[in-house]
Structure formats: structure tokens, C-alpha cells
């Protein structure tokens, strides 16, 4: 076969990659040791970053892409896909991760935004992107820019699932509401939520987002993960919830099982036994406005 007949970085390859993650758990890891624990527990992918969100909150200052040294070590340590976070709008950090061989880039509000006006033009990249969203309009704006996967933002590093629930309900509820609209009403609604009309119509036809939709931001227990699946998530990201718990191995395996059997309370009960200390949580209502990560990017 001639090499020029191969096509790389197409929309289908990007969305297809995201689709292979469905029903899975993607775990935040900060070093190769964590990555191996995650892989061993059955994670479908790992997210390489310098600190888990709970520690980013504590550290303050500017949070950036992880040291390429750490990312490269994680890539070498595991055979499952490795994702990495870049700052919103920071297209050079994204090029750096792409060159390292990262399989998907998370343009993430957990890091300090590099551009308060524009997100990365994701269609220019070979590697696929995942982006956070709080509602349907935000999700569709990101998809329009080229995101191959959406994750609800939730409120990262809090161990509190309330915002993840709010965002998943907002997105799923808005899609359900499209059912009662005719074409003109959908076009008008698209203007209202500042989203491209053709994507709103596509959501209506499919009864779901045009790309895979994961849940993220505050998932700390197997029950949290299973609830997000029941609310319509295609899979979950767990950030601080695993490596800030007292027994990460056990917690990681339990969350994988709970996502697999999200509609079976007996299984969730069984895997939730004796997990030890869950990560300490934060009341999102007591966060100062500048501490709320979900307001970054819109």
C-alpha cells in the first residue's frame, strides 16, 4: 500500500477514538507509578498532569501543562491511551503534547487560562481534543471548534459531585427539550444559547450530543460514578477522587466496576465496601468566585 493513500487526523478518527473510551473510566495521574496503578485497575486511559486538581487548588498560582518529562515517562509506563491537559487557548502547549505522542488533549479549565477570548482551533491538530462544558451551548461551541469529546465541567478538586450533576442534567435536559421544537424554534434557540444551528438540529435528530459525552469534576465514589452514568454520561473522568483516597488501588477498581454495572445497585454496594477514607470534600458554595474553576472559558 502506498503511504499517500493513508489519511490521518480526520474528524472520524478523532470522534472514533473518543467512542472507544465509552463505558470507561479515565483517571488523573501525576507519575508513572500512578499510571500503572490506573492501568492495572482497568482504566481506559490516563490523564497526565503535574498535580491533581485538589492540589492545584492548594498550590494556587498559575497552573500549566505538565513537565514533558513526566508526560513522556507516563507514556512509556502504560499501553493504554495517555491524555494530557493544556491551558484554555494555549495552542503551543497543545502542539508540545501532540509532539510527545499524547493520544488526546484536554483543553482544561482546571489549568489557568492562557486566552480569555479564544479557545484553541482544534481542527488544525492531528490529535483529538476533549473540552469541558456546563450546558448545551458551551458543549456545541467546543464541538464547532473541533472538540471530539465533551466532558461536563463539574467543579474539579472538590470531591463534590453536585456541579457535575448540574451540568449533566443541563445538557441532557436541553437535548430532551429539543424534541418539542420545530426547525424555526431550534434555529431561534441556537441563537439564544450561542451555538451553531446545524449542531442543535443534529442533537435533536440523534437525541444526544454529536460526540461522546463524559462526566467530570467532583466524582469521588463508585456511587457518584454510577449516578453520572445513569444521568446519561458515556463514561467518567476521575481526578483527585482516586489518588486522594486512602486506598487508591481499591478505589480505582471499585469505580471501574461501578461504571461497568452502573444500573446494578448490588454490585455498587459490594464494591463500595471497606474502601477506606474517601477524599475530603469541599462545599462548592463556600468557594470564592476566583476559586470556581468552571467559570473559566465559556
Amino acid at each position: 500500500m502506498k503511504l499517500e493513500e493513508l489519511r490521518f487526523g480526520t474528524e472520524l478518527l478523532k470522534r472514533g477514538f473518543a467512542s472507544m473510551q465509552k463505558g470507561g473510566v479515565i483517571m488523573d495521574v501525576v507519575n508513572a507509578g500512578h499510571a500503572k496503578i490506573a492501568e492495572e485497575a482497568g482504566a481506559v486511559a490516563v490523564m497526565a498532569l503535574e498535580r491533581v486538581p485538589a492540589d492545584i487548588r492548594k498550590a494556587g498560582g498559575v497552573a500549566r501543562m505538565a513537565d514533558p518529562e513526566i508526560v513522556a515517562e507516563i507514556i512509556d509506563a502504560v499501553s493504554i491511551p495517555v491524555m494530557g491537559k493544556v491551558r484554555i487557548g494555549h495552542f503551543v502547549e497543545a502542539r508540545v503534547l501532540e509532539s510527545l505522542g499524547v493520544d488526546m488533549i484536554d483543553e482544561s479549565e482546571v489549568l489557568t487560562p492562557a486566552d480569555e477570548q479564544y479557545h484553541i482551533d482544534k481542527k488544525l491538530f492531528t490529535v483529538p481534543f476533549v473540552c469541558g462544558a456546563r450546558d448545551l451551548g458551551e458543549a456545541l461551541r467546543r464541538i464547532h471548534e473541533g472538540a471530539a469529546m465533551i466532558r461536563t465541567k463539574g467543579e474539579a478538586g472538590t470531591g463534590n459531585v453536585v456541579e457535575a450533576v448540574r451540568h449533566m442534567r443541563a445538557i441532557m435536559g436541553s437535548i430532551r427539550a429539543l424534541k418539542g421544537m420545530d426547525r424555526q424554534e431550534m434555529i431561534d434557540y441556537a441563537r439564544e444559547i450561542e451555538a451553531p444551528a446545524e449542531l442543535v438540529i443534529e442533537c435533536s435528530e440523534r437525541g444526544r450530543l454529536p460526540v461522546v459525552n463524559f462526566s467530570a469534576g467532583g466524582i469521588a465514589t463508585p456511587s457518584d460514578a454510577a449516578m453520572m452514568m445513569q444521568l446519561g454520561a458515556d463514561g467518567v473522568f476521575v481526578g483527585s477522587g482516586i489518588f486522594k483516597s486512602s486506598n487508591p488501588q481499591k478505589m480505582a477498581k471499585a469505580i471501574v466496576e461501578a461504571v461497568n454495572h452502573f444500573d446494578d445497585a448490588k454490585v455498587i454496594a459490594a464494591v463500595s465496601r471497606g474502601l477506606g477514607e474517601v477524599m475530603p470534600g469541599l462545599d462548592v458554595h463556600k468557594l470564592r468566585e476566583d476559586e470556581v474553576l468552571q467559570y473559566r472559558g465559556r
Binding site: 489519511r7 480526520t10 478518527l13 505522542g101 492531528t126 483529538p128
Partner: peptide, 8 residues
């Protein structure tokens, strides 16, 4: 890796 994924 993913960047080497292809259609043909």
C-alpha cells in the same frame, strides 16, 4: 499512537 491512526 492515536496520531498514527488512519483511514484507508
Amino acid at each position: 499512537r492515536q496520531k498514527e491512526s488512519f483511514e484507508s
